[in-house]
Design a protein around this nucleic acid. Sequence first.
DNA 1: CCTGGATTAGACCAATCGGTCTATTCTGAC
DNA 2: GTCAGAATAGACCGATTGGTCTAATCCAGG
Lengths: 184, 184
Amino acid sequence: MKDNKPLPTKDRLIRAASELFRKHGYHGVGLSDLLAKAEAPKGSLYHHFPNGKSDLARAAADRASDQILRILANCFAEAPTFKDGAKALCDRLAEAFDQSGMWETCPVAATLFEGPDNDEFRAHAAHLYEGWIAEVHDHAERLGMDQDTAQAAAEHLFVLLQGSWMLARARRSSDVLRELPERL
Amino acid sequence: MKDNKPLPTKDRLIRAASELFRKHGYHGVGLSDLLAKAEAPKGSLYHHFPNGKSDLARAAADRASDQILRILANCFAEAPTFKDGAKALCDRLAEAFDQSGMWETCPVAATLFEGPDNDEFRAHAAHLYEGWIAEVHDHAERLGMDQDTAQAAAEHLFVLLQGSWMLARARRSSDVLRELPERL
DNA sequence: CCTGGATTAGACCAATCGGTCTATTCTGAC
DNA sequence: GTCAGAATAGACCGATTGGTCTAATCCAGG
């Protein structure tokens, strides 16, 4: 793909893992694919991630989750109302969807849900999701909702976005995401 | 698991595939797992499904999709209003979720979306999804909605259910699904 | 009973899997 | 300049992968 070379090896590995897992799922990506895309030798992988593929998946999911959190913060930071924030978020994600080639999944689901059938992994995925919801919850409260309404709104937005992303993927079109705000 | 023996081999294979793919995803299941669960030898697999794993995945997804269609039909058949149908559907799916051990994914997504990165497969997945939406659409129209409203309602329900199922899975609880009707 | 296609059975295969290990190179502290 | 630890490099490993192929078996029609 692009010239990732200036990045340190560890970051190149995480970036490659994040991309590939999103496209093909945890089990759909081999170490060889990973190392080829990161342009790194196997030794480096096991130096930076002693537990290999699963460690890397965790790191990739965490990185992706941070990106999402940043997007959430940005979209809601400038929004005068919750609805405006939600709208900005939908547009921002639709954009990301189009840029990704309209086929990537939710990174956390791809790398952790469908990953090693390990309870710790699943719990971590749940933890990341709750982090997203908590972030939206805080903005909702800040924008005038009471505790319970804020929680319901945050969860509802999460659910809508996950579901819309999936339908968008099936249709290979970001329209569903773009039209989402109208349905609120 | 259960005594699948009385079923013909082909059906046992499809059933096993359907279950395993839902739990671990297409790439997360090996032929050995599949054959062990179906109690069938490799020869039978390639006799009934000449293209092997991918053929089987298609069949499993089709079977699962038919099950969903039946559930949709049942829930809406007895419902006096669209809202009642949606509520029945949520309850029915929450039940299925609990029975499945709270970890299975949408069968179509698991076997086709995360399956072989083949465009034909993806298109077929999209086709199955549109079939579900069409089924709900028809019931919506029958229950008094006009064309456009019915389509919007059907898509909205699809999105909500897919998203809720994902959050339910993260939380290992069907509560999100059960509370869904209140949010309509 | 005989026969021929459908089905079952599993040995076998090359390729790939994730992972280990040793050797080498790079790099910053002294 | 020296030297230790970090990092890179990739040969190598056993296990498993999806898939092929031949032999045995089953079973329905004659």
